[in-house]
């Protein structure tokens, strides 16, 4: 059983890291979900015991399963769930403001933005300043949550 768990955890973590290195936001999120599940499985594996449900008093000398790892894993699952939702929200809002989820494309856009900003700052007049703050305000309203 331990070997099986170790193998599954290894495969999950490895696939997660593989996806994490892809230049696509949604693949990165999927990779992170796999890594989080590898961690959850590690928690389960850290207290693998066979026995009765740990509710009430056990009759006689029957063994009781370790309830702690179940509780920990459940908590970790909930946290992983919240984090996945947050990351998906972030990816969607990147997609909406940049129309791309490709990390290379995003960094290219960012570099272009930086150049534009520098060029704008050199002659500098107030009109552009206003433009920029308007842009930010609009972007804020569009963002979910």
């Amino acid at each position: 059983m331990n070997l099986l768990f170790a193998l599954v955890i290894g495969v999950l973590f490895g696939s997660g890291v593989f996806l994490l290195l892809k230049p696509d936001l949604f693949r990165v999120v999927a990779g992170l979900v796999l890594i989080s599940n590898a961690a959850n499985l590690t928690l389960m594996a850290s207290g693998l015991t066979r026995g009765l449900a740990p509710i009430g008093r056990a009759a006689g000398d029957e063994r009781v399963a370790d309830p702690l790892v179940q509780a920990m894993t459940l908590t970790a699952l909930v946290i992983g769930f919240a984090v996945t939702a947050l990351l998906l929200g972030l990816s969607v809002s990147v997609y909406r403001s940049r129309h791309s989820v490709d990390l290379d494309e995003l960094s290219r856009q960012q570099a272009a933005d930086a150049v534009r900003r520098e060029a704008r700052e050199a002659p500098h007049d107030e009109e552009h300043e206003l433009d920029e703050s308007d842009e930010q305000r609009v972007a804020y309203h569009e963002a979910p949550t």
């Binding site: 994490l20 936001l25 990165v28 992170l32 890594i35 989080s36 590898a38 961690a39 984090v83 947050l86 990351l87 972030l90 990816s91 809002s93 990147v94 403001s97 940049r98 995003l106 856009q109 960012q110 933005d113 842009e135 930010q136 972007a139 804020y140 309203h141 569009e142 963002a143």
Partner: peptide, 22 residues
């Protein structure tokens, strides 16, 4: 605060630190 630049930074921040958390 919204806006592309902040969100990409937040994304990288979250991903790197989540790997640390796991």
């Amino acid at each position: 605060r919204g806006g592309g630049r902040h969100v990409s930074a937040a994304f990288i921040f979250a991903v790197v630190n989540l790997v640390g958390s796991f």
